[in-house]
């Protein structure tokens, strides 16, 4: 029943299937071995507007480096280089 209804629906323009961009771990690609907690500018790329750490599924980093990044961000927060929570970080 469902598919009969389906083909009756005429789409104005064909539904664009979102092409899945292959995510890569930027640390492996760039060969970075150590995430520095003092470098707030670099760490900001892994935070969203509220200053929360972005999940791996969005940034695509591998588990090993995601842990290093989150450890570095927490150290930066301890040293008040990064805020724990804010509204407009970028």
């Amino acid at each position: 029943m469902a598919n009969q209804v389906n083909n009756e629906i005429r789409y104005l323009n064909p539904p664009t299937v979102e092409v899945k961009k292959k995510k890569y771990c930027r640390f492996k690609k760039a060969g970075i071995k150590y995430v520095d907690y003092k470098d707030a500018e670099f760490l900001k790329r892994f935070l969203n507007e509220q200053g929360k750490i972005l999940p791996r599924r969005l940034t695509g980093t591998s588990l090993k480096f995601q842990k290093k990044v989150s450890q570095a961000v927490k150290r930066a927060r301890h040293l008040a280089l990064l805020p724990y929570v804010t509204d407009l970080l970028k």
């Binding site: 071995k33 150590y34 520095d36 907690y37 150290r75 301890h78």
Partner: peptide, 18 residues
């Protein structure tokens, strides 16, 4: 406020470069 941090070999290499 203070933070002490034990540096592994990658950290040492990074520090020299910095």
């Amino acid at each position: 406020r203070f933070l002490t941090f034990a540096m592994d070999k990658h950290a040492v290499a990074y520090a020299e470069k910095r």
